[in-house]
């Protein structure tokens, strides 16, 4: 959070009351985020969203892939060919297109790059438990 502010991103938090006991954090948006910002490349495990803008698909793909992580990605568009291209080029283990945060035991889940080894769920998840030749 502090690095987001000190690196020049714009912070927005709505005025809302939080319980005085326990660990709570206000919903937080960062705008004017650039790729070099730490909050763009690392995930804050809390209700914090870093917003980067784009004008072209190439730009969106480049920005989305500029991280050592790759667990999931989401894309919203009403054009089928765009969905398929984004799905092909986003470096993530799961791509949710026109939906988000869907899980199913029959659907493999797991990440690219530094987001982990292997998959859980689906045939690909089962294969990790088998030695086949």
């Amino acid at each position: 959070m502090e690095s987001g502010v000190s690196e020049g991103a714009k912070l927005y938090q709505p005025a809302c009351s939080l319980p005085s006991r326990g660990f709570f954090f206000r919903p937080t948006l960062f705008t004017e985020v650039t790729q070099s910002h730490r909050i763009a490349r690392e995930e804050i495990f809390g209700p914090v969203l870093s917003i980067l803008t784009f004008r072209t698909m190439d730009e969106a793909i480049e920005k989305a892939n500029n991280t050592m992580y790759g667990l999931s990605a989401g894309v919203w568009t009403d054009k089928g060919s765009r969905i398929l291209r984004m799905a092909a080029e986003l470096k993530a283990g799961v791509v949710w297109a026109n939906t988000f945060n869907k899980f199913d035991p029959a659907s493999p889940f797991g990440g690219y790059k530094e987001s982990g080894f292997g998959r859980e769920g689906g045939r690909q998840g089962l294969l990790d438990y088998l030695e086949l030749s």
Binding site: I83, G93, A97, N98, P108, L132, S133
Partner: peptide, 21 residues
């Protein structure tokens, strides 16, 4: 013969799963 297997290819592929409603 075990050196000739699709599972040797599997060692170095990532799996990408796509959802669409």
């Amino acid at each position: 013969e075990s050196n000739e297997s699709v599972y040797e290819i599997r060692n170095f592929v990532e799996f990408k799963t796509v959802w669409h409603p």
